[in-house]
């Protein structure tokens, strides 16, 4: 039985070198997925590379209107940042639905993303927000949209030696608002049966000028539903537009039956939650319009 080593590098370069040296090595952010999987025997990495000692890896950074979140930033720290919470309340709420307070004090959005569960709560919200990941690797840094990271349940597009160092948000558009809703049997401590992240922009007349709608747990990865967004753009979010949006969401949903939900329930909820999330996002957009 190979033993697992623990390293806590101080620089991104050292972390990349350690990860590149052992393809089974795993970056450790909050550990709330990694350690559970190791304990259950589902994963036995040659090494865990603790990212939290790397400078700048934890915290919310703001450059003008744009936010960047270090990969090792725990979810509760997002909530504590008033400016981020005001700009991207949907993202902050999504991240703060994961697990419990104890879990969110450790869990990170980057980890939530790289665990590559289709049910990850923060991911649909990040995709709706148009967030991108900064990835460090042996050949330097690159940026990819969040939705390009997960490729199938448990698998990411990251190459050996690569890890996410930062999640960047575009400047918040004027008249923009976002929201995330999920369906779970319990009120807390649960995994999304369906999740819906929405980001929209309303003009001064209340007409939707842009929208991004992303779903969790209705496919092998997060699903960005362009038809649903198209159904909203140009409308005042009237009932017909919302119904068309819900229909597009349901059409794009291709879930499975499992212990957490059925196909028919997931499809139905995707439509309901997306509509409710649009209305919340609209109220936020309106409030700031």
């Amino acid at each position: 039985m190979p033993s697992t080593a623990y390293h806590a590098p101080g620089t991104v370069e050292d972390a990349v070198a350690l990860l590149a040296a052992d393809p089974t090595a795993r970056p450790l952010g909050g550990g709330t997925d990694l350690i559970v999987q190791m304990r259950a025997g589902r994963l036995s990495p040659g090494a865990v590379i603790d990212l939290k000692r790397i400078g700048g890896m934890s915290g919310v950074h703001r450059a003008g209107d744009a936010f960047a979140i270090g990969a090792a930033t725990p979810c509760t720290a997002l909530k504590a940042d008033a400016a981020l919470s005001a700009a991207w309340p949907g993202v902050v709420e999504a991240a703060n639905l994961i697990g419990s307070v104890q879990v969110r004090n450790r869990a990170t959005m980057a980890g939530n993303l790289c665990n590559a569960s289709p049910a990850a709560d923060s991911v649909p919200a990040l995709v709706a927000a148009g967030a991108v990941c900064v990835i460090a690797g042996p050949s330097g840094q690159r940026e990819v949209p969040v939705e390009a990271i997960p490729v199938s349940p448990g698998k990411t597009s990251l190459a050996p030696g690569e890890f996410v160092v930062e999640i960047r948000f575009p400047p918040k558009p004027a008249g923009g608002g976002d929201a995330y809703l999920r369906s779970t049997p319990r009120t807390e401590m649960d995994i999304a049966v369906v999740g819906a992240g929405v980001s929209i922009v309303l003009d001064g007349e209340g007409i939707c000028t842009a929208a991004r709608i992303a779903l969790g747990a209705v496919g092998p990865t997060v699903v960005l539903v362009e038809d649903a967004a198209a159904a909203l753009v140009g409308s005042k979010l009237d009932d017909d537009a919302l119904a068309a949006m819900s229909q597009a969401v349901q059409a794009a949903s291709n879930p499975i039956d499992d212990k957490r939900g059925t196909v028919s329930y997931r499809k139905a909820m995707a439509g309901v939650l997306a509509r409710r999330a649009v209305l919340i996002a609209a109220s936020r957009a309106g409030a700031k319009a």
């Binding site: 049997p185 319990r186 009120t187 807390e188 401590m189 649960d190 995994i191 212990k259 957490r260």
Partner: peptide, 8 residues
């Protein structure tokens, strides 16, 4: 305890 859902 995650998927055997006792009330919280």
């Amino acid at each position: 305890f995650l998927d055997y859902r006792m009330p919280v």
